[in-house]
Design a protein around this nucleic acid. Sequence first.
RNA 1: CGAGGUGUGGCUCAGUUUGGCUAGAGCACCUGGUUUGGGACCAGGGGGUCGCAGGUUCGAAUCCUGUCACCUCGACCA
Length: 477
Amino acid sequence: MADDKKQLEAITPMEEDFAQWYTDVVKKAELTDYTSVKGCMVIRPAGYAIWELIRNQLDAAFKETGVQNVYLPMFIPESLLQKEKDHVEGFAPEVAWVTQGGLEPLQERMCVRPTSETLFCDYYANTVHSYRDLPQVCNQWCSVVRWEKTTRPFLRSREFLWQEGHTAHATAEEAQERTEQMLNVYADFCENVLAIPVIKGRKSEKEKFAGAIATYTIEALMHDGKALQSGTSHNFGDGFARAFNIQYTSKDNKLEYVHQTSWGMTTRLIGAVIMVHGDNSGLVLPPKVAPTQVVIIPIQQKKEGVLDKAFELKEKLKDFRVKVDDTEKSPGWKFAEHEMRGVPLRLEIGPRDIEAGKAVIVRRDNGEKTEISLDNIEATIGEMLERIQKEMFERARAHRDAHTYSATNYEEFVKIINEKPGFVKAMWCGDRACEDKVKEDTTATSRCMPFEQERISETCVCCGRPAKALMYWGKAY
RNA sequence: CGAGGUGUGGCUCAGUUUGGCUAGAGCACCUGGUUUGGGACCAGGGGGUCGCAGGUUCGAAUCCUGUCACCUCGACCA
């Protein structure tokens, strides 16, 4: 029976098992594949094309703020890694070590970079001498290795692709400014390009980066109500500068330490796109990161003129990323296939349409099907893609808002965390003990203290002492 | 790393309890033909030493030991 066949190919419904749904989508949309290397993935063409679109647009945004790209080694000598105490303690459990070069054991082992703060510090210590050398605003696109225990495609793998920006400034104020500036670049990117709404805020002491004086984050809410940290920006103060002796001579001839920042985003963003926008038919890509924005499906493609018309339309739409699917599959198969892959618009063109000067166009995000005129089709498609981009963001924001709750006492807080997936806003005293207790009682963690603070009550939701800040809480990936 | 689960053609699985004919099915793939507006149909065809390594046995997908991988949950992280 036809239904049985569909069942065999189907994606597990997300209501039934969200984790399995995610795995199915990643696999069936051919974004990644498993490898013989434990915990590492192949990013397949369909997945890598999304990453390229993310990378190109993010890189352009960086450059508008004066960022320059560099490349540093992938190995870090142990002595270098150990210079900053908090940093090495934070990363020690998850670094991979190289102990042998060729046939000879190394006199000093080296780790494969889990992040490159120490290398950038080494580099800046050598190049920064005068206030005239500042600021240094560098970024590198690379992969890093963290020896994770359990892995999932895009969300957690032992090697992943990312960018890491590292800056050095003359003053603490400048460093803080850069930290916030890059967080804003990230937030704008998520919202405008990935159509993912984010909460901007500051991490607690417990959750901040190893070696930072302050970590800022953008937090997104996935469709299942779990939080995903989607980008971070750290202010290091002069801690690393003191550990690595990065000093410069100021205008008035005094020796000063630099103030540093770092900030990063990863291929995890692809996981976020999947989990925010996807549905039970598969991936749903925002037009700005869709490798194919419009797929043209010829109907009765063997009939005279149909394929010609399809390719003619592709040529007419060359400002967009357009693909004609002229394979031998049936139209119905193609519809399902391109839905699986998240293509934002499907254009059906058959003999009837050609005669009428029309085409059928279907939106992936909401299934809306309309007939459009072939005249002026470029403008129509352009408008539709813009509208999809905008409405996907609005839909995600509505979902986020509908799954954001407030709690003013602990009983209510625990009840909401356990029963309603999403963010819970609650006041916090600033004490780590309360974060630990919340985690133990509910497995939820503090996500961030939002820049947009509200005062929903006067006391800490956990201990009842005077509240210091509003905190977003949630269960996280 | 702790608990649980699963490994049989590309995919989903049956067969394992109770060892025994040539290891099966559906989907996918290849060829030819008919089709084409929501996963088409007919005919023919190719592909598996049953995760891997040992062991028990006349005989192992099936029993034993070890090992590896993957999935789910937990701890850790972007």
